[in-house]
Design a protein around this nucleic acid. Structure first.
Lengths: 110, 110
DNA sequence: ATTTTGTGACGTATATTTGCGTCATAGAAT
DNA sequence: ATTCTATGACGCAAATATACGTCACAAAAT
């Protein structure tokens, strides 16, 4: 692509797409699940659950942190990660809204 | 990446990630919106709504067709696209399920 | 003081996505 | 028969994502 055209779209749509993108990899979904299961959430612990190197896991964590879905708190040497419930709830509303907007009437057949 | 490790994850998670990926671009979200608004849904019509070339739009359509979110019916020269309500509803359930699984208790703070 | 442990930052290689132009095809209109 | 319209298939270039190794750093343990 000569240029990324993402900014030519509606701002809200772009934002929603960004959130979907954050969820578009099984590793990131697994991380969210894991963080929901256990609140003790060191980076190292997360790595042990995933079939990926620490480096890669770290990168996925960054991608979840960027849209604010998770938070990272430095605790001495360690960093504790956890879900950002507020954002997750926003996400839930947003996605639900979009999907019901899309499929208001279920007779959308050709 | 030396290798795509997507297949090392839970099959269900991978499937969910695939669906999220299909929704991870504003153009594709816009297409879904547009198809919900109007059922007359020729490729050409869709192109006029998007700031992208017909070639690119076609590709996005393909990406929506693959997971079955939309259907394409050949009508003479034209192809009519429309939402696949059944799949959209599946999607809605799946996402809702995942999100409530993630955020069962809203006291997930560090 | 040195080692260990847990991290993040940086660079690199490969894979995939995005965007587009061009071509071929098939039906409709002239 | 030729032109026009609508479409899909193919291939290319640039941008991003994915995965990893290596390095540096800071606190804790030895």
């Amino acid at each position: 692509m000569v240029q990324s055209k993402t900014e030519l779209f509606d701002k809200e749509l772009a934002e929603k797409a960004m959130l979907f993108k954050a969820l578009a990899h099984p590793a990131r979904l697994r991380i969210l699940q894991f963080l929901a299961e256990t609140r003790s959430c060191m980076t190292g612990d997360i790595c042990e659950v995933l079939p990926l190197s620490r480096t890669t896991v770290n990168q996925h964590l960054k991608e979840l942190k960027e849209p604010g879905l998770i938070k990272g708190e430095i605790d001495g040497v360690k960093t504790n990660y956890c879900l950002n419930s507020e954002k997750i709830n926003n996400l839930k509303d947003m996605l639900g809204g979009f999907l019901s907007e899309i499929d208001c009437c279920s007779d959308n057949n050709c």
